[in-house]
């Protein structure tokens, strides 16, 4: 039965991810708060489950000429270096502390997104 619940958490995160609203920021807290999955495990699951969806989305976007390749190497290479550093930072924190930091990150993100959504004219 618990597999069904993990699947449902994935669907909810996936719907938001597919809509471009940041699925990981929903899947990680769902796994942590409701299913008591450890913070490190929730983050690992989010990282790896993002890959197949991103590949499909990317193929569609490239076909639609929506991807901007300019300076992409200047972004990705430093990103790879700092994400490895980030992985070691996460590893050095306890699950308890990492979850608290993640909570703070979520609050900041939601305030930032709320403000930019209110400002956006449509």
């Amino acid at each position: 039965m618990k597999y069904v619940w993990f699947g449902i958490a994935g669907v909810l995160g996936g719907v938001l991810g597919g809509m471009g609203m940041g699925g990981g920021t929903l899947l990680i807290p769902l796994l942590n708060i409701f299913y008591k999955v450890g913070q490190h495990t929730a983050q690992a699951v989010n990282l790896l489950s993002f890959i197949p969806m991103a590949v499909v989305a990317l193929i569609i976007h490239i076909k639609n000429k929506l991807v901007n390749f300019k300076r992409i190497i200047w972004i990705i290479l430093p990103g790879v270096v700092s994400c490895i550093a980030g992985c070691y930072i996460a590893k050095s924190l306890s699950g308890y502390l990492l979850a608290r930091c993640f909570g703070g990150f979520l609050v900041l993100l939601s305030v930032f997104q709320f403000v930019s959504e209110i400002k956006r004219k449509n």
Binding site: Y3, F6, V11, G13, G14, H40, A44, C87
Partner: peptide, 26 residues
């Protein structure tokens, strides 16, 4: 993360399938 032993197939496989389904719907 996987090399540090943080990945868990029991959570990862059902959640991953869910993400793909949900992602398409989204």
């Amino acid at each position: 993360y996987a090399a540090f032993g943080n990945f868990n197939l029991e959570v990862g496989i059902p959640a991953g399938i869910g993400v793909i389904l949900g992602g398409t719907v989204g």
